[in-house]
Nucleic acid binder design. Structure first.
Lengths: 148, 148
DNA sequence: ATAATACTTAGAGTTTACTCTAGGTGTTGA
DNA sequence: TCAACACCTAGAGTAAACTCTAAGTATTAT
């Protein structure tokens, strides 16, 4: 099966601009064109797009994705480079998730605090309630830095 | 206590460029300047920087942070807008963490796969091993989309 | 006193990942 | 056949968040 750029737009949700841009940047090095220059995407190309989306979601930049594709095309001699890439990504994602957990706690504290502030009609009163003082102390190293 | 921009650079790790940029963008509306125009940051300003960092980490854009600061300065009449902001952020962070969990599984699969590929010296052999086929099926809706 | 250092402003430049425009070619249905 | 539509390229424009430059003033250490 082969697909026009319009088909791929519908399948992937990417814009035609973006698909051409990816190609220009060296992702999708195998998209064929017919006699009049019109792109015909293969199922293989669609699988690459799935992989590109995953790598993008993991935080890779486009030039890093291009590097990965180049390694892939060089075959088994680049297995260790590709392993390194995935190891590094895993570590970065772990850090990112830890970071988000910390931020989430802070935002949840604020959400609870503002619910209470609305209940009593005043932010300062809520902030100074014992249970919020305690929560703040539990969540933050420098609790007062977080009163803004 | 008051601090020069250089002091704040050391304390926060932000560059002087960035600090001036934040001010230009309406974050830090209270930074004082001495007779010759030199910035003197207060402890209050430093607390704002802590809050700004948190909001930035939660994914807010600078103009949204400015809006929050404006609401804060308008006092208790804007409590509900601020609560909405934190609720929305919490929801977005929840989605983001769910997204990262999915990506993490895919990257971990790749990491394991490439370890095995290096062990046997060939990616295809590893990919076709029963346990990796099973893992792939467990992790992805369209397993073969993930062989790139 | 003077050199080094820190600071000021306005505005230009950078990076990333698109997103769009202009001007044109090719395909298809009534 | 001819209008509508999908496609093409090269290159310009956009948004966000910085990052830096130039030209000048102020402060501080010796």
């Amino acid at each position: 099966m082969s697909y026009s750029i319009g088909d791929v737009v519908k399948k992937t949700g990417l814009s035609a601009y973006t698909l051409r841009y990816y190609e220009k940047e060296g992702l999708l090095p195998f998209v064929k064109k017919n006699a009049s220059g019109v792109r015909a995407y293969s199922d293989e190309d669609l699988r690459w797009l799935t992989m590109i989306e995953c790598l993008k979601d993991s935080g890779l930049q486009i030039k890093e994705i291009r590097q990965y594709i180049e390694w892939f095309n060089e075959g088994d001699s680049t297995l260790s480079q590709r392993l390194s890439l995935f190891e590094n990504r895993r570590k970065i994602l772990e850090k990112e998730m830890a970071r988000l957990t910390v931020v989430m706690n802070k935002i949840r504290y604020k959400e609870l605090l503002y619910r209470e502030a609305i209940r009593v009609g005043n932010l300062e009163i809520a902030t100074n309630e014992k249970r919020f003082m305690q929560l703040k102390k539990k969540l933050f190293e420098s609790p007062d830095d977080f009163d803004k």
